[in-house]
């Protein structure tokens, strides 16, 4: 009964927006052992998930999330990034496992929980969506500050930080037959696929949890061609 109404909200988008102009493609290199240090710490990490109690408490939470998104979206394209989630939930530490009925009541969520909410929202809009795991480069000062700020157990190190590199999560939506955009749900913006270096640069990416039946072994993100379920260096 609980899912009866919810399932009616799932549809498919009949037409995709105009495909962005094509740039020269770069097939991203699957990680070789020598260069694997960029993401080695997180090589076997799975994308975060929000758990379900299997009861109405979590179903109410999911219905609230998707209905609220429907209201916020208004006349916007279903491809609009759900920035309201970032407005509602600050970016900060989350403890896992976390259940739906808990997550939607938190004031602070980490990138994995944020990405899970955004994933759910896109899915309910009928937009093909994948989970994305990333490695970004910041600075040792940033890492130091996050370690101090996000460390409820006073551990020496946080597992998602490795020197000036951090593990991060978001989601990707399919905007054409094989083209994606990557939504950084805990920042509230679309990530730029153009290559960049330095503070905030994306160093590696993996499209995971690919339940989309697109018939492609890889997807295009800007000029990057990303194999599914494998880490790619950028």
């Amino acid at each position: 009964m609980y899912l009866e109404g919810a399932s009616t909200g799932i549809g498919t988008i009949e037409s995709f927006p105009a495909v962005a102009p094509t740039l020269p493609e770069v097939t991203c290199e699957a990680i070789s052992p020598q260069r694997a240090e960029v993401h080695a710490t997180w090589q076997h990490w799975e994308a975060s998930r929000i758990s379900h109690h299997g009861e109405s408490c979590c179903e109410v939470a999911r219905e609230w999330l998707t209905a609220t998104d429907h209201t916020h979206l208004g006349s916007g394209s279903p491809f609009t990034g759900p920035r309201w989630l970032r407005q509602r939930f600050r970016w900060g530490a989350s403890r896992f496992p976390i259940h739906w009925c808990e997550a939607v009541r938190k004031k602070t969520l980490d990138c994995g929980a944020h990405a899970s909410l955004a994933y759910e929202v896109f899915r309910f809009r009928g937009v093909p969506v994948l989970r994305v795991q990333m490695v970004q480069q910041f600075s040792e000062i940033a890492a130091f500050q996050w370690t101090n700020n996000w460390n409820p157990d006073n551990a020496d190190e946080l597992p998602w930080i490795d020197r000036d590199l951090i593990y991060h999560e978001g989601c990707a939506i399919l905007t054409g037959s094989d083209r994606i955009k990557v939504w950084d749900s805990s920042a509230g913006w679309w990530l730029d696929p153009r290559p960049s270096e330095g503070y905030g640069a994306m160093r590696a990416i993996r499209l995971s949890d690919a339940s989309i039946n697109h018939g492609e072994a890889s997807l295009k993100w800007g000029m990057n061609k990303l194999p599914i379920s494998q880490w790619s260096l950028l």
Binding site: M1, Y2, L3, E4, G5, A6, T8, G9, S56, E59, V60, E63, W64, T66, A67, H70, T71, G74, S75
Partner: peptide
């Protein structure tokens, strides 16, 4: 006018959830 129409659709969506969750 268009905002009203979208809000109306939004209300239908909420009502649908309400039906599903209350029976």
């Amino acid at each position: 006018i268009r905002s009203w129409e979208f809000l109306f659709q939004s209300i239908l969506r909420w009502c649908s959830s309400l039906e599903a969750l209350t029976g």
